[in-house]
């Protein structure tokens, strides 16, 4: 096993008190990525502290509904860390009701925006975020847009496009080429 991979498994086991299963993959160029599912959402905070100790950089946080909307039965939040070119993803599985995660902002300053962002797009509470306000989404729009729009989207999907196309058709009937 490569050095980075061994160190990651060692610090995760140390932080979480048990060995964590990390699936390591290599792409066609030999670049490694590790994938690990944590048992409990709270574990992400000690895990992040341990990774910070290894010099890992928090690269991105991806929240999602699983399976794809509108059949979602749960949510996931995936934290992607960079270890000098190797990407490690820690994934939390969260319920549809009462999803909560601890804020990583006290450990990683750049978690601030990432957390504000998934908080405004999904029904996920971020515990202990220092500045939990809207970031990109205008206050006039409903919260948790990725979820609210599930039933709504079938209605609005293409609505503005349809209106425009009716006008295109009308113009051709008036003015056939």
């Amino acid at each position: 096993m490569h050095e980075v991979e061994a160190r990651v498994e060692l610090v995760l086991a140390g932080a979480l008190g048990a060995r964590q299963v990390v699936a390591w993959r290599r792409d066609v160029k030999g670049v490694a990525s590790g994938w690990c599912r944590l048992g409990e959402p709270e574990q992400v905070l000690p895990a992040a502290r341990a990774l910070a100790g290894l010099g890992a950089r928090l690269s991105m946080v991806s929240a999602s509904l699983v399976p794809a909307a509108p059949n979602a039965t749960g949510r996931e939040v995936a934290y992607h860390f960079d270890l000098d070119g190797t990407t490690l993803t820690l994934t939390l599985e969260l319920p549809l009701q009462g999803a909560r995660v601890p804020s990583l902002t006290p450990v990683y300053r750049n978690a601030d925006w990432q957390e504000r962002e998934f908080r405004e797009l999904y029904d996920i509470e971020v515990l202990g975020h220092p500045n939990p306000g809207r970031l990109f989404v205008d206050r006039s729009l409903e919260p948790a847009l990725f979820e609210r729009l599930i039933p709504y989207s079938t209605f609005i999907n293409g609505a503005s496009g349809e209106k425009l196309w009716r006008q295109v058709q009308a113009a051709q009937q008036e003015n056939p080429s």
């Binding site: 991105m60 509904l65 699983v66 399976p67 794809a68 750049n110 925006w113 990432q114």
Partner: peptide, 14 residues
């Protein structure tokens, strides 16, 4: 099912 990306400007703002 999900497509997420983080652009380089994102961490640089802070």
């Amino acid at each position: 099912v999900r497509l997420k990306w983080r652009v380089p400007s994102y961490p640089n703002w802070a």
